[in-house]
Design a protein around this nucleic acid. Structure first.
Lengths: 199, 199
DNA sequence: CGACTAACCGAACAGTGTTAGGTTAACTCA
DNA sequence: TGAGTTAACCTAACACTGTTCGGTTAGTCG
């Protein structure tokens, strides 16, 4: 079936279906063939709209991270940090399966750097030295990414019973999905508050 | 060539060569065939000593993380936290290319949980509630993993010139490998100190 | 000496990302 | 209106990947 009357594919549609697959089947669950099938198309056709799978993942990551809010700095730098961290975490939490991909480094993601640049500038404007600003921004990212990665809910909530016997101090209650999610949030808020207060 | 007089393979040798490949070529640079070739053997032979590649990576991760020091809690819980975090980061820094694998969650790694359990117990002994202990341990992991992941040195130090023009606040100096490494350390120490102080 | 196991190999399977070359619809312009 | 170009899809293939199956033989035990 050659060129259809109305195009079946577009970068946007590809990205959104790919993200849906990642959300449903995990990061390893996304393959170009599966993505193509879900779009009603053959795998090779994707390469007319997407340069490479890695680039596609980077684009998806960028759109996911576009929900990060860096507007709070106009009020107060502390408020800006907290709001930025919270919205960052919220964005990652909406699509947790893409987080492992981000772990490979912000190599080609332009918007991440742009955001980092803005955050850095705001801190400098607030009176911090360039070096301090860099370190503070880095520390904030540590907490955000650390929280997104080593979370209790996604980490090891598969079969609580296995853990209880061998790790006496890890309460089984911690591993119940509902509690785990709440615990993740509270741990994040604790770390964030301690960090910002300690500056 | 069938069964040789002295075995060519052993789990330990497989692990150490695999880790060397990961250090040299990155996580994606490790394939079972390449690993086998480097061991002077065919890929299929590995499966007599290793259940699966994922298991192999988990074993490697465990040996890397066995360098984590949780002995400081006998002195003081603050000292214990700091020493644990530092040694954890040091271990990850020795083999940075395996960090992205750890990002997939501590699913099957027994020793990680054992360590977490010990840390948790020590905090409870020091007077924290179970819930607080969990949150503190989690926060510590946030900083450690966040620092290992979103580091300046491994993140984007490939071609500094590209960044300078587009991100005015990110000083080029930050991207020089030597400075970046030092900046990573200082950022980590800042975040760690702020966190522990803020508790 | 015979049976058995342990350690390796060759070949294959199903799957991966990606590319080359072909086919045809839709658009552009004389 | 008709020719030429481009855009969007296809089939087929390449070089990989992790993993398994069925052999072949060296070492070991009874």
């Amino acid at each position: 079936m050659p060129r259809p009357s109305t195009p079946l594919l577009s970068p946007g549609r590809i990205r959104s279906v790919a993200l849906a697959i990642i959300d449903r089947d995990g990061l390893d669950g996304l393959s170009m063939r599966k993505l193509a099938a879900e779009l009603g198309v053959q795998a090779a056709s994707l390469y007319g709209h997407v340069r490479t799978k890695d680039q596609l993942l980077n684009d998806i990551a960028s759109t996911v991270l576009s929900a990060v809010d860096v507007s709070g700095f106009e009020v107060d730098w502390r408020e800006g940090l907290i709001r930025c961290a919270r919205s960052y975490r919220a964005a990652l939490l909406t699509h947790p399966n893409i987080v492992p991909f981000l772990a490979y480094g912000p190599a080609g993601r332009d918007e991440s750097l742009q955001r980092l640049d803005l955050l850095h500038g705001a801190l400098v404007d607030a009176g911090w030295s360039r070096r301090e600003a860099t370190m503070i921004a880095a520390g904030l990212m540590y907490i955000v990414f650390g929280a997104a990665l080593s979370s209790f809910s996604s980490g090891f909530s598969s079969d609580p019973a296995d853990y209880v016997d061998r790790y006496p101090h890890l309460d089984r209650a911690h591993l119940l999905p509902g509690v785990a999610r709440e615990l993740d949030r509270d741990s994040f808020e604790l770390a964030l508050a301690a960090f910002v207060r300690g500056l």
